[in-house]
């Protein structure tokens, strides 16, 4: 057993020690580690996002990509905890919610803060050197099908000029990763049906919850109703089998 433990440990150490730093060369044929392990998860290795929900980055100006990440980094850090923010830091929680788009809040602002300047440079250089595929997923910030990289760049640059680019709203508001941000005006008939079913089951506390206009998952004015929902859930005892 001990021999086994030793060989496992030394195996792991050997792997760590012998792994070369991925960002050694200047002209790359292989993507930098930050692209392989982080960016490519949504944007693809060659910057052609598989899902239509994520922006394709292939062929964009490196300076534009850097500028965009800088804007994410300049934005207030997103709360990774809505409840605690609501409890302890209500004012700031509202501020943060107001200054970020749902997509940026859920996915990009936080991870941008985790990047080093070196990693940003490497990622931007890599993606700007890639060729955009017309068949790949469109940018969430651009109408589908309209984008040669040149047009994309121009559009981006125009928007980025003096504007809060974090607030660019996507034509498809869909968010593939799924932020917890509902648009109160975008409630389908299904949603209303569910609300009715809820009421009939005795979940009266929820009805108000959903009527609230501040319903973006961060500064829920209806959060006080959360407690009521717990109450209702306890009360379900009387209607349970």
């Amino acid at each position: 057993m001990n021999r086994f433990a030793v060989s496992l440990t030394s195996g792991v150490i050997a792997l760590l020690v012998t792994s070369p730093p991925a960002f050694a060369q200047k002209v790359r044929s292989i993507p930098p580690r930050i692209v392989t392990g982080n960016c490519s998860g949504c944007h693809g290795i060659h910057g052609n996002a598989q899902s239509p929900e994520f922006p394709s980055l292939a062929g964009l100006d490196a300076s534009y990509i850097e500028q965009r990440i800088a804007a994410f980094r300049a934005a207030p850090t997103p709360p990774s905890d809505e409840l605690l923010y609501w409890l302890f830091n209500h004012a700031e929680s509202k501020k943060i919610a107001a200054s970020n788009s749902p997509e940026a809040l859920a996915n990009m602002v936080g991870i941008a803060h985790a990047l080093t300047p070196q990693e940003i440079k490497e990622a931007a250089a890599w993606y700007s050197a890639q060729k955009p595929k017309p068949s790949a997923g469109h940018s969430a910030n651009l109408p589908p099908g309209s984008m040669t990289s040149k047009i994309a760049n121009e559009k981006h640059q125009a928007k980025a000029n003096g504007q809060d680019i974090l607030h660019e709203s996507a034509p498809v508001t869909a968010n593939a990763m799924g932020g917890l941000n509902d648009d109160p005006f975008d409630q389908s008939s299904w949603f209303r049906l569910v609300q009715n079913l809820q009421l009939s089951a005795g979940y009266s506390g929820y009805a108000k919850f959903n009527e609230g206009t501040h319903h973006d998952g961060l500064n829920q004015d209806a959060s006080s109703n959360n407690l009521i929902s717990v109450g209702l859930w306890l009360n379900f005892q009387t209607v349970g089998p």
Partner: peptide, 26 residues
């Protein structure tokens, strides 16, 4: 955890990546 600077408390991977639960969980 709530008073710890730059950590907004959630299971640790959310703090590591700065992303929300919904980035990794459907």
């Amino acid at each position: 955890v709530s008073v710890y600077p730059d950590a907004h408390a959630l299971p640790s991977y959310a703090r590591q990546t700065g992303q929300q639960c919904s980035s990794c969980h459907v």
